[in-house]
Amino acid sequence: MASRTREQSIPLRTLCIGVVAVWIIMAAFPFLWTAWGSFKVEPDFMSRINWINALTGPRTIEQTGSAFSNSAYHGAWVDQGFWQAALNTAIVTVSVVVLSLTIATLGGYALARSGFKYAYWLLIIALVFRAMPHITLVSGYLLPFFELNIWGYLPTSIIVLVAINQPFTLWMLHAFFLTIPKDLDESAMVDGCTRFQAFRLAVMPVMWPGIVTTGLFSFLLAYNDFTVTTLLLSQDNQTMVPKIASFLGSTQTEGNVMFAVASVVMAIIPLFILILIFQRQIVSGLTAGAVKG
């Protein structure tokens, strides 16, 4: 019977395929184009003569002898020290994910299990905090951080990102813990466990799917952040995103744009792999709040 509701007339079906095709091209083409172009030299990628040069690369052949050149990658990675930025990003994202999951798991569990009124209000306050534009918070940090002499270091940014992440992570884990039956930890407590033992022995073994999904979104928030890392990190400690922005900020010397193009492609690769592996979890995470909220 389900198939009958899906039946469609030919024109409508074509229209639908058309819509999907247009959307997929819009979504994927810019990334494919940039990835292809990153192996060309700037006069080809940004050709004054003809945009087709970015596909065929006549100047690239002229300058390097081959239609594909990795000079942009070499320049960005080695000469411009992008590897250092990539390393910093790895440190920041891993620390943010681990820290924010640890404290939000405890908090989300408590919020899901307590029937108190103030737990409800905490969630509403968290929602308001979630809506705060990050830059308004950053403008509050700068002066105190300068005074305390903690501006510019990775740990400062990490703890700030953990805090900014917290409202969202709390909401998501709270929603997830609501799906774990109360009986599980309550029967453990009847058997003589303390609250924390019940959490550790009865709840922790079954909570990993929710942790993985929430962790993905924590990762994305830390990895994609521009505001905090640009304003709170010194030049030497920059992560990838502010580093890419700095390639553009400096004078538009030839080749600099190509460093940015190559770095952009390198910064997208981990995200690409992430979707490849965790597509199902990302989709379920996006809908978790909606279906229950």
Binding site: W23, M26, P30, V241, A245, L271
Partner: peptide, 21 residues
């Protein structure tokens, strides 16, 4: 899979990719 790309990619990186195009 491809639909998720524009949302997952860092906003500033996504806007740069379009900016160059």
């Amino acid at each position: 899979f491809f639909s998720l790309l524009p949302m997952i990619v860092t906003p500033i990186i996504g806007s740069l990719v379009l900016f160059w195009m």
